[in-house]
Nucleic acid binder design. Structure first.
Lengths: 679, 679
DNA sequence: CCCATTCGCACCTACGTGACAAAA
DNA sequence: TGTTTTGTCACGTAGGTGCGAATG
């Protein structure tokens, strides 16, 4: 666990920030995945769990808190000292051991989400940032009242497909474009006590989506015409600096996935938005000759969210949580029902010795049925058509995650456990006929898996693997030993921790390996060194005592980039494939499986990035260039999405786009810190 | 320094909070003034400085951070354990010793402030809360780039007078009504690094003023028709929990004082607001037959703020700092100029042994002239008329603070040092003739006193004393040994710290003294125990790891109240008198005096509240009853404003109103925790 | 009657919506 | 050419202004 290779490494990615409107702009902050054993003096951490832990932290990187303001692109050596001081302080912060909790999470406005999901949810992304609608809002229960928690959400690719809306239906239109770094959005109220979190719904409506790869606000950057899966995370920690070392409990609500668009494709979605989003009231058919387009599209559907979520539900757990709401109209139907998602629990220090049977490979089921209302649920047209995909691009067969996601809302009712899920995944097409009957079961059934499970690394890897070679879900044995596909800036790094823990060499050693093989994307602004963005405190991070030492001044740029890229890849990979598949299967099935996962096993003294873990080469095989250790000019590998099985042509295309990005990065890297990459 | 009497005491005051609109509601949070020696293991703290330190912390109490949400009125014993854990963590947080900084603070939009000040600034207070205009905004320089700072502001009574607007001028209309507890408003970005703070202006526009004594939002409660003085504080601390033990550097901009009103009295002020506040554009004379009233009042004055402060100045240090601004119109004249205020620096651990000569009684002058622009400055009509006061109410002569404030913007040009100021204060009327010539000098000259000076307790006491018997300002010898007039809920208390530091007995000992004598006002919601208000993290406190143990369950109520009341009084006393007087004098004088103040000396083992410090009896003499040690039924003294020299009739009136409030408090105290006091 | 306060209102800023046309 | 993206717009919500009548 003191293995210098990966005991504590991290990279700071940084988005230069210039808020033209300092109001509610989130800014990226990245925490370290560093995991010194000394951080848990009272815990008998073993090498393996620790390594897993560290990895997990890294995977959950790219922490992103809402904030605003701007910063300076200066390097400040003194920061190192300050960071060191803070680290000492952090070190002494004892974790809330012995805290007992059993979080249950319910998705708010599930009916609304379901309505969208059935049609194939679309989320508009704009340069200036666009909110999600419906707003991502969850109700949390089962937390320890007094313990402190950090709640986060992120949005990861649901598959590695690009879509197009053709003939009134979504279909696969090729391989996914490279993903920009996805940032963890830390709920601005974090950390807060369980009691506080449970007091009211937790909303993430401040998170904004954008297609502007140069975004300086810290918005979540998505690719248009790609499918994404929002995720919710609960971390018991009283300090954001501890995030990287903490256990992430991740919850995925399959009905919240969506395709990012720059303009709505499906008129029904448009109408649904208009009917339910208070801000779009101007487009509702008020009898007065209002808007054109969208005629009778609007089913007499419940225009519910508008009224329910608004003031009806009371205060919510976010500063401006009530912004979208408000509407004096009577609420036509209850919409407060919620959903219980699949829960991916990445334990860390809890699993020290696998002394707890829970952490082994037994399957302990303990699920909680969500409140979910028996609302009217129709078949979801949101099936990017496996059929079309299959016939159009048979060569994409291996991309099971894509296929899987395409049947997300209906198939796999029979799945009762990972094995079954696995078996079913083998023949996605066969499951098609069963869609119809799935509808009925779909709606109200909600499953929450409990018990220790490894998420971050494990989960992500599983996701990645499933996309790559259809590994069975949640099989720890399978997951262990597979390569972690990192993605830029998902890697969390507390610069202070990094700079003061003498881990520069770790990064170096990482870079010496095939660290870059999987991290192909340019972190754009994320890896830009500079002073800590301003106003972090307002929205959280700064208040956590995180100082932003000029990362670039502490380490050679190549290392910074590579670490960030490698670590980040782990969480932004086509994760939705497995995740959504499993959760959907579970959701559809009437059973309540209690899935249990063991932590991802990582060889204690091998670099996660460089070690010859099975699958690493695999994932890299189709991408081409592998950067030489420490070499600046080495072009990074194809990137997280680089499926080894993808056609050569697509791989080349992807590689090219990645290289474009990387070249920008490298150019930036060679110039003064704090500059944005051109274009 | 381990003196149980006041080595570490604190009381938690708490405002039950129910945000109907969870958006931007600040919520009160109170930190401990506890000062255990163990908190500064590396510092050779001596009893006296420590005691002074603790007192100062208490004086700066009533910390108030913007936040929202609601809470529960439950007591949770477990909180104690959690608090203890946090305390341990806090204890290990080493202060940034050896940090060198020399903060300079400039008031933004000084010209605008000056325009208002000349007319006699009025601020509307409403039940729902009203922002200040001009917004209180400062630019900070000279901070240590890497050190963490907490920035705060509060608004204290400028004198103990009530005013009325008669014959187009403000005049004293009697003695001030009792003040509600004033809360420290912690800038939501706190803590942040000096670099971050210096990056852009720090705005406090989120602070709202109200006249609703039952306010649950944490707004600053003011008395209508009373004069107030905003203050700005810089504290070098990386954790809000440390606030009570930290050195406050306080800056007062005399031109920012104002009279709270429920409706504008001076039409010129109205017009100035309309001309400069973007939100009041609807009332501007746009040629179109717009608003009535206010005809040609609007001089062709520079309608500047509107354009300048808006987007022109870039992002500012607050989440919604840009909210009021914005205006596409070209900016007619530069308005970014700033002012350097008087600085009151309360050192704490810096003054351990008075080893530093700075802390002694030498006068080291080191001022910085503000950028201030030579804008057009006319005579300020804002002179609540000493004349009228004198003739109308000659019996008020002794209320020099009132008188002083009445000539704030013009008199005392000759003052070069405290002594001179003192002498001048003796004959306020004599200074009248010199007003005219003062105008010219007034505007641009700005002075910032540097070097160690005791603020919190010392300053406040000085203010109080000056109001009571015209003690010379900043004379530490004079200040020492005087009573501290406390005010409820200005006392800061971190419940966790309190409960886990075994200081209950300290409070008890305090209560045994005449602690209640000066704390007459009911803390209303402030003293209400309960769980920690939600969403603290969003706007800061919760993120600081502050848990809110049910204070009431940890200590008997009487102690809670008394400590809070006693400590709070220190900062809400008529502080503006001396402060504004001095600063104004300094401001007006062409000289640049380098004032130096030694820390307020407090007898190590005597209760600040009960010790027979000179002036204690004095202040109490006119108010009647003095509570017996430990006696609950003892009626508190007249309160912070109770000038011993005030006419009996007024004293009685004030006493009555205070007693009304106190009775409510005591009732609350005897009942279940978490309840608000009636009425 | 005077004064202070309160309330609803019109009018503004700020910004969240989708429509639409133009651009890429 | 077809699709996708961008910018502007009207129209909503949310809430910050002072006004002026009503209230006490």
């Amino acid at each position: 666990m003191r293995d210098p290779v990966f005991t504590g490494t991290g990279a700071m990615a940084y988005h230069p920030f210039h808020a033209h409107r300092p109001a509610d702009f989130p800014v990226s902050a990245f925490l370290a995945a560093a995991q010194p054993a000394s951080f848990f003096p009272s815990l008998g951490l073993l090498p393996k769990p620790l390594a897993e832990h560290a990895l997990s932290g890294a995977a959950e990187a790219g922490l992103h808190a809402a904030l605003h303001g701007h910063h300076h692109h200066h390097s400040h050596p003194q920061q190192q000292a300050a960071a060191a001081a803070h680290l000492r302080a952090l070190k002494s912060l004892e974790p809330d051991e012995e805290v007992e909790d059993d979080p249950k999470v319910n998705l708010e406005a599930k009916e609304l989400w379901d309505q969208f999901h059935k049609l194939g949810t679309e989320m508009v992304i704009t340069k200036s940032g666009r909110r999600m609608f419906p707003p991502y809002k969850v109700r949390v229960n089962g937390l320890d009242k007094k313990a402190k928690y950090i709640l986060l959400m992120d949005i990861v690719a649901a598959d590695d497909c690009r879509y197009k809306f053709h003939n009134s239906r979504w279909m696969v239109a090729g391989k996914a474009d490279p993903e920009m770094p996805k940032r963890m959005y830390i709920h601005p109220d974090s950390p807060a006590t369980g009691e506080q979190w449970m007091a009211k719904p937790v909303t993430f409506h401040k998170l904004k989506l954008t297609n502007n790869i140069s975004d300086k606000h810290g918005f979540t950057i998505l690719n248009s015409m790609h499918k994404y899966q929002p995720r919710f995370h609960i971390v018991r920690a009283n300090d954001i600096l501890k995030l990287p070392y903490s256990t992430f409990r991740t919850y995925v609500f399959p009905e919240t996935d969506f395709i990012a668009v720059t303009a709505y494709q499906n008129d029904k979605i448009t109408q649904l938005k208009i009917d339910n989003n208070p801000f779009a009231k101007g487009f509702r058919d008020t009898g007065n000759g209002r808007r054109e387009k969208r005629k009778q599209l609007s089913l007499p559907a419940l225009r519910v969210y508008d009224e329910a979520c608004a003031k009806g539900d009371g205060a919510e757990s976010d500063a401006s949580s009530c912004e979208p709401p408000s509407s004096r109209e009577p609420l036509h139907s209850p919409l407060g029902s919620a959903t219980s998602p699949l829960k991916f629990n990445r334990s860390s220090r809890d699993e020290k010795n696998s002394t707890e049977s829970d952490q082994e490979f037994e399957h302990q089921e303990q699920m909680s049925v969500g409140v979910s209302s028996p609302g009217p649920q129709a078949a979801s047209p949101f099936k990017p058509s496996i059929e079309e995909k299959v016939k159009d691009k048979p060569e994409l067969d291996k991309k099971e995650d894509c296929e899987d996601s395409s049947r997300e809302s209906d198939s796999a009712f029979s799945i009762r456990n990972p094995e079954k899920d696995k078996s079913e995944r083998g023949n996605p097409k066969e499951s098609e006929p069963s869609r119809k009957e799935g509808k009925e079961r779909f709606t109200p059934l909600l499953i929450q898996t409990e018990g220790p499970s490894s998420f971050s690394a494990n989960h992500l890897q599983s996701l990645a693997l499933s996309g790559l070679h259809g590994q069975p879900l949640f099989n720890p044995l399978t997951a262990a030993g597979h390569p972690l596909l990192f993605h830029p800036s998902q890697f969390a790094m507390a610069p202070g921790a990094f700079s003061t823990m003498g881990m520069g060499h770790l990064l170096a050693s990482m870079s010496g390996a095939s660290a870059l093989e999987n991290g192909g994307l340019s972190p754009q602004g994320t890896a830009t060194p500079g002073s800590f963005p301003f106003h972090l405190s307002q929205h959280m991070l700064a208040s956590q005592g995180i100082s932003m030492p000029p990362f670039g001044s502490l380490l050679p740029y190549p290392y910074t980039y590579m670490a960030a890229a490698a670590a980040a890849a782990a969480s932004s990979l086509p994760a939705g494939g497995v995740a959504s598949c499993l959760s959907r299967n579970a959701l559809l099935s009437g059973s309540r499986p209690r899935l249990r996962f063991s932590p991802y096993q990582i060889p204690p003294s091998s670099s996660l990035l460089s070690a010859g873990l099975p699958g690493a080469d695999h994932a890299d095989s189709g991408s081409g260039s592998s950067s030489k250790p420490g070499s600046r000019e080495g072009s990074p590998a194809p990137g997280p999405h680089g499926s080894p099985h993808a056609p050569a042509k697509e791989a080349v295309n992807e590689l090219q786009s990645i290289q474009r990005l990387v070249s920008g990065l490298e150019k930036q890297r060679d110039e003064s810190p704090g500059r944005e990459s051109p274009k």
